[in-house]
Amino acid sequence: MVGKDIRAQVFHSIQVKVLATFLLILLPVYVLGAVIFHWTYLQMHQQIIRSQMALLNLYAETIDDEISRIRLLEYNCINDDDLGQHRTIHKRHFSEQQQPRKARITLLIDSREHTASSRQAGPVSQKQIC
């Protein structure tokens, strides 16, 4: 009986009753807090995903618009009459500038061919050079 009295005293003590009451009151508050935290986490996660998807759609539309705009500008540039005239003038001017260069290249090629043919003919003595 002495063992039962000790257990009865432990369960009937004021400290155990206060602790049990404290846990019974605060445990639902903690559970409710955890549930609200989890629900808030899911809501924020979904909101971030929706926001990122909207931003991604905006970027996709923007890049499509920019590609269309660049294609239109490219088409306008290709079919522009003023640029076409400038292109033909530039080609004519460029070919006129290349004439002296072409002449120099032709001279270099001829001199190399002459040098190659003289090497094939044999060594040149000093008397032949002078």
Rank of each mutant, 00 (worst) to 15 (best):
V10G: 01
F11I: 03
H12R: 12
H12V: 01
S13W: 02
I14C: 00
Q15C: 01
Q15Y: 06
V16H: 03
V16I: 13
V16G: 00
K17W: 00
L19N: 05
A20T: 13
T21V: 07
T21N: 10
F22A: 09
F22P: 01
L23E: 10
L24W: 04
I25F: 04
I25D: 02
L26V: 08
L27K: 05
P28M: 02
V29N: 03
V29D: 01
Y30C: 09
V31I: 15
L32A: 15
L32E: 03
L32S: 11
V35W: 11
I36G: 03
F37N: 08
H38D: 04
H38T: 09
Y41D: 09
M44I: 07
M44T: 09
I49F: 09
R50A: 12
M53S: 06
A54Q: 08
L56H: 11
L56M: 12
N57M: 04
L58E: 15
E61T: 07
I63T: 15
I63C: 01
D65V: 04
E66T: 05
R69V: 00
I70L: 11
L72A: 06
E74G: 10
E74Q: 13
N76L: 14
C77W: 11
N79S: 06
D80V: 04
D81M: 06
D82K: 13
L83Y: 06
L83W: 01
G84F: 03
Q85K: 15
R87N: 09
R87I: 08
T88A: 02
K91A: 05
K91C: 00
